[in-house]
Each structure stands twice: as C-alpha cells, then as structure tokens.
C-alpha cells in the first residue's frame, strides 16, 4: 500500500505503520506525536486528495 501510494506520487511520510502493544502507552504517545508532526510538516508542502466544494450559482 505504501509502495503504491509512493508510486502515485504521494509522500510516503503520510502513512505510518507501527507495532504497539496495549502495554506500551508511552510508545503510543511517542508514535502519535511523531506521526502528527511529520504529516503536519508535509501538509504545507503538498495539497493532494483535497476536494473543493462545487460552486453553486
């Protein structure tokens, strides 16, 4: 899936995979922080899969 995203021209940094045990709450927090930071950084760079509302007369 990640390969195909990249193949289509999406930044692979938009999709993250992680193994987190239910006991690893701190790891979950760390990963969530890291993912949001990375995706937010990309947001300014590329705007893709964005739909604009159709203009109604």
């Amino acid at each position: 899936m990640k390969n195909l995203m990249e193949h289509m021209g999406l930044d692979p940094g938009r999709l993250h995979f992680s193994w987190i045990s239910s006991a690893e709450s701190t790891k979950f927090v760390d990963v969530a922080k890291k993912v949001t930071a990375e995706v937010k950084a990309l947001e300014s760079k590329e705007k893709k899969f964005v739909k604009t509302k159709p203009k109604v007369a």
């Binding site: 990249e6 193949h7 289509m8 021209g9 930044d11 893709k48």
Partner: peptide, 14 residues
C-alpha cells in the same frame, strides 16, 4: 518508467 519519476511528475502522470 513511472518509478523513476519525481513525486510531482508521478502525481501529474496519474
């Protein structure tokens, strides 16, 4: 051929 494109080119191609 597509794999060797830059991300923006890939996006434009599709």
């Amino acid at each position: 051929e597509v794999e060797n494109m830059a991300p923006e080119e890939k996006w434009a191609y599709f």
